[in-house]
Amino acid sequence: MKRFKLNQYLRTVKLCRENISSFSAYPFSLEAVRNLSTLDFHPKVTFIVGENGTGKSTILEAIAIAYGFNPEGGTKNFNFSTMDTHSELCNYLKLIKGVKMPEDGFFLRAESFYNVATKIDELGVARSYGGVSLHDQSHGESFISLFINKFKGNSLYILDEPEAALSPSRQMTMLARMHELVEQGSQFIIATHSPIIMSYPDAVVYELKGGFKEVEYKDTEHFQVMKQFVNNTEKMLEILMNSY
């Protein structure tokens, strides 16, 4: 894919494979890492999709840390650690940036968002997130509050499974908000399992299956499985219920 622009915030990530002594140990043994050489990002939205355990989140986390975000998430101004669990992969990545710096950004990790919400309260900056503590909202509503109130244009957003707390209708709300932010000059890099979220039309989708392959949205395994289930629910349930 050679559609990147000089003024996008993040153009390419490269794995410095020559510095890795062995691909048999974690995190280098993960499928996503073993098969990574370079990955070009769309100037608007890039999706990374694939099965559980392939290493999507590990790669996304490493990209975010290499860019300067806190490992547990938040803006680049966040600097806290609840538990040091991130891998050393970030030390082996080379990021190729555009000529333009983002005005802001956010690294969202669904699994550690509770810790980020706690830090927001401790810092007394809830006003930037809608004026109400994220802990005083449901998990899903706190995600939407983040998207609506904190996210703005001309920024870089790295999101790991943002659908984790969102109902289908709220995922559509996120799509609409994401489009608004893209139109205002923001760039998104997203790891997701959601066929709704990955439907964003002006995007590139990388499917991780024996390597990173650029695919059309409707050719992803996620879309195909969901389509088959929705269109043939009774038959699929019969197959599933009789498979154990």
Rank of each mutant, 00 (worst) to 15 (best):
E51A: 15
S37I: 04
V45T: 14
F47E: 07
F47W: 07
S57Y: 04
A64P: 04
D40N: 14
H42C: 11
I48F: 13
I63G: 07
E61H: 13
G50Y: 08
G50A: 08
I59G: 01
G53I: 03
K56Y: 01
T38P: 02
L39F: 09
F41W: 01
A62K: 04
G53H: 03
A64Q: 00
I59P: 02
I63Y: 09
S37V: 12
H42V: 13
T58W: 00
A66F: 00
N52S: 13
P43M: 08
V45L: 05
G55I: 03
G50E: 07
L39Y: 12
F41Y: 01
A62L: 03
H42L: 10
I65P: 03
G55P: 05
P43K: 07
V45K: 04
S57T: 15
T38K: 14
F41E: 02
V49C: 14
L39W: 09
G53E: 05
F41L: 03
A62W: 01
L60R: 00
S57C: 07
A66I: 00
V49D: 06
I65F: 02
F47L: 06
T58M: 04
L60Y: 03
F47I: 05
I48G: 13
A66P: 00
K56C: 10
K44N: 15
S57K: 05
E51G: 12
T54D: 02
D40W: 06
K44Q: 14
I48H: 12
G50S: 06
G55E: 05
F47S: 10
A64T: 03
E61Y: 02
K44P: 02
L39N: 11
I59N: 01
T58K: 02
D40I: 13
A64I: 05
H42E: 11
L39C: 11
F47C: 08
A66C: 06
G50H: 09
H42N: 15
K56D: 05
K44V: 09
F47R: 08
G55R: 07
E51C: 01
T46C: 11
I59W: 12
K44M: 06
L60M: 08
P43T: 12
I63D: 01
T54H: 02
K56I: 06
I59S: 02
N52E: 06
A62P: 08
L39H: 08
F41Q: 03
L39Q: 09
T46N: 10
P43F: 12
K44G: 10
T58S: 13
T46D: 06
S57D: 05
S37Q: 09
V45E: 08
I65D: 00
T58A: 13
D40K: 13
K44E: 15
S37E: 15
G50M: 09
K56Q: 11
A64G: 04
N52F: 00
N52V: 12
I63N: 04
K56T: 09
P43A: 11
G53Q: 03
